[in-house]
């Protein structure tokens, strides 16, 4: 029951639940990261990053209702820290036995790796979305949340519903072009074609 509440609380931005998540799980993650050549700051950064990845996953309904929150959170943290130290060439020094014990839980490892890729994809989308004009940044969420074109026209001071449709395609096209120039795009593309 509580596992579900953690995810829900994260997605809904419930400050009390988010606070409880930090209080309950951050010390364990920090402890593990410190034992694996990290610092308190590394632990905090990895943990916060993992929570953000979980929000993305939860919002896109990619988490099964019976997902073990703690196991998934630890698996994501572990993968993130391994990726980080891989850059520092310290991978062989990591003591896998602790946080990795949760990997035995069905599918957790796959879900956590998937979450990392998704976070990279989201970062690419975000990096490029914020380069769009303010109008496009307002219009796309409205269109995708199925607001009526007439209402959008009024809200964004556009002439009429046709202008909304025209602008919608122009905004998506501009966004796509920026994505195609993003550093992560070739990686995303190759992952998709696997």
């Amino acid at each position: 029951m509580k596992k579900l509440n953690y995810i829900k609380g994260l997605i809904e931005g419930d400050k009390l639940i988010v606070d409880e998540i930090y209080k309950t799980f951050l010390p364990k993650v920090s402890y593990w990261i410190k034992r694996n050549h990290g610092t308190d700051q590394d632990g905090f950064d990895v943990f916060q990053d993992a929570l953000e990845a979980l929000v993305t996953k939860g919002l896109e309904h990619k988490l099964a209702p019976d997902t073990n929150f703690q196991a998934l959170l630890f698996a994501i943290c572990r993968n993130k820290w391994i990726s980080a130290i891989r850059l520092k060439k310290k991978e062989e020094l990591v003591r896998f036995e602790e946080l990795s014990r949760y990997n035995d839980i069905t599918n957790i490892q796959a879900v956590s790796e998937d979450a990392m890729q998704e976070q990279e994809t989201k970062k690419m989308l975000k990096d490029t979305f914020i380069l769009l004009s303010p109008l496009c940044q307002q219009l796309i969420p409205m269109v995708e949340n199925k607001l009526a074109a007439k209402e959008i026209a009024v809200e964004l001071s556009m002439t009429n519903a046709n202008a909304v449709h025209r602008r919608k395609f122009a905004c998506f096209e501009a966004w796509r072009k920026r994505i195609e120039k993003h550093d992560y795009y070739p990686i995303w593309k190759s992952l998709k074609s696997l």
């Binding site: 997605i11 931005g13 930090y22 929570l51 953000e52 929000v55 896109e60 989308l125 796309i140 995708e144």
Partner: peptide, 29 residues
């Protein structure tokens, strides 16, 4: 991916802001 991001973009931003705000007091630095 773009449409899905566009749909939840507002909510994601809001949730991530709370994570960062609440996390502030746990940040070692």
């Amino acid at each position: 991916e773009m449409k899905s991001y566009g749909k939840v973009q507002d909510q994601t931003e809001r949730a991530q802001r709370v994570i960062r705000d609440v996390g502030h007091k746990y940040n070692p630095s």
